[in-house]
Simulated scan of single mutants.
Amino acid sequence: MPREQGRKVIASNRKAYHDYTILETVEAGIALMGTEVKSLRLGRASLVDAFGQERDGELYLHQLHIPEYAMGTWTNHAPRRTRKLLLNHKEIVRLITKTREGGLTLVPLSMYFKDGWAKVELGLAKGKKEYDKRQDIAKRDANREISRELGRRIKGRS
Rank of each mutant, 00 (worst) to 15 (best):
N143R: 11
L87P: 10
Y131K: 12
R140S: 14
V120Q: 03
A50V: 08
A45D: 00
G151W: 02
A50S: 11
K8R: 07
R81T: 02
A118W: 03
G29M: 03
G6H: 05
M71Y: 12
M71G: 09
W74Q: 04
R157H: 02
L109P: 00
T105W: 04
S12G: 10
L95A: 03
R81Q: 05
T82G: 11
L32T: 01
T73L: 10
L95F: 05
H89C: 07
M111P: 01
D141S: 15
R80D: 01
E58V: 05
S110C: 09
S147H: 09
M71W: 14
L86C: 01
Q63V: 14
G123H: 02
G6I: 06
R80P: 00
E36K: 08
Y17K: 06
H18A: 09
G156C: 02
A16S: 05
G29I: 00
L109R: 05
H65S: 11
Y69I: 03
G103P: 00
G43D: 10
P79S: 14
M33Q: 12
E145W: 12
H18P: 00
E101S: 15
A125N: 02
T82Y: 06
Q63S: 15
E145D: 15
E149C: 09
L124A: 01
T25W: 11
K119L: 06
W117P: 08
D136Q: 11
G34Q: 08
G6D: 02
I137A: 14
G103Q: 06
K84H: 15
F113C: 11
M111N: 03
A138P: 03
D136A: 13
H65Y: 14
A118H: 00
I66H: 14
S110G: 04
K129R: 12
L64Y: 04
V37K: 10
V37R: 03
G116A: 08
Y112N: 09
R14S: 06
N76W: 00
T21V: 08
V48R: 15
A125D: 00
L109Q: 04
R144D: 06
L85Q: 06
G52W: 01
P79M: 07
R152H: 00
P2Q: 13
V48F: 09
V48E: 15
V107F: 03
H89Q: 10
H77K: 06
R94G: 11
K119W: 00
E121N: 06
Y20C: 09
R80S: 04
K84G: 07
T97Y: 10
I92R: 05
V107R: 06
S110T: 07
K139F: 11
N76V: 06
L122H: 00
G52C: 09
K38R: 14
G127Y: 04
K98C: 10
A118C: 12
S158I: 08
E58R: 10
S110N: 01
V26K: 08
E91V: 13
R94N: 10
K129V: 12
E130V: 13
T97L: 09
M1A: 12
E145V: 08
R148L: 08
G29N: 11
V93G: 11
L32V: 09
K155A: 12
T73R: 03
K139S: 11
K119I: 03
S147K: 10
G102H: 04
T75V: 03
L106N: 05
E68H: 14
E91H: 02
T99C: 15
T25C: 13
E36Q: 12
D49G: 05
G52A: 08
V9R: 02
Y17S: 00
A118F: 00
K38H: 08
